[in-house]
Write a protein that binds this DNA or RNA. Structure first.
Lengths: 105, 105
DNA sequence: GGTCAATACTTCGTGATACGATGTATAACG
DNA sequence: CGTTATACATCGTATCACGAAGTATTGACC
């Protein structure tokens, strides 16, 4: 999938992935795989961005002797998803414009 | 509208704007305004990118003593729009994932 | 017990790109 | 004659997704 097209989607996807249940990096990637593929470097960049934007909080926990960082969505994070859904209406309008411009010859 | 969300849309919008009729910079911006706002610097960057990608061809013409550059879509440009429509199916899947992850409490 | 895949997180550098700022030049309007 | 609209161009910057590379542990296979 085109990178540019993903850009507006990834942040919200990650938020959606932790919305119902706290999750951690590796699991987020696997959960999103059927919908969007993203590399580890991309994910961790996103998680840091979302954290500094107070869209989520982090909690470290040990699991089988290995460290795991669990991410928990905040009110702002939930708000971000709602904003996205609003903006989606504009996106649909744009898509319709692109589709509409058909040559009927 | 969120810049990131626009990123995958702008190129195709510009192509759609010249699809049925050759157009020029200033007119493209005005035609797109109801759907997406984009600045002149952005547009001319896009037009150059699309030109070097052979998505369109350019032709200079005088209009009322002023220079105008008319842009004409190529086969590749039309193909780009079709590819976009295909990719859109994936985008819809992603959107549905984001929407689906609702908390039902 | 040694090798390898899977799990899990981190850092660095790079290329793509939307935008504001700024500039040039002409036409139209009052 | 000043202002607005038309029309195109360039430069620098910030944001961002990604590949590459690295660290470290667990578990399976032979």
């Amino acid at each position: 999938m085109d990178i540019q097209l993903k850009r507006g989607l990834l942040d919200v996807c990650v938020l959606a992935a932790i919305k119902n249940e706290d999750s951690y990096g590796y699991k987020i990637i696997k959960d999103l795989k059927p919908y969007v593929e993203l590399s580890e470097s991309t994910l961790y960049t996103i998680l840091k961005r979302l954290e500094s934007g107070k869209m989520l909080t982090v909690r470290s926990a040990e699991h089988d002797g290995r460290l795991r960082k669990y991410y928990h969505i905040t009110k702002a994070g939930l708000g971000r998803i709602e904003d996205f859904k609003e903006e989606w209406k504009e996106v649909i309008t744009i898509y319709q414009f692109v589709k509409k411009e058909e040559r009927h010859d």
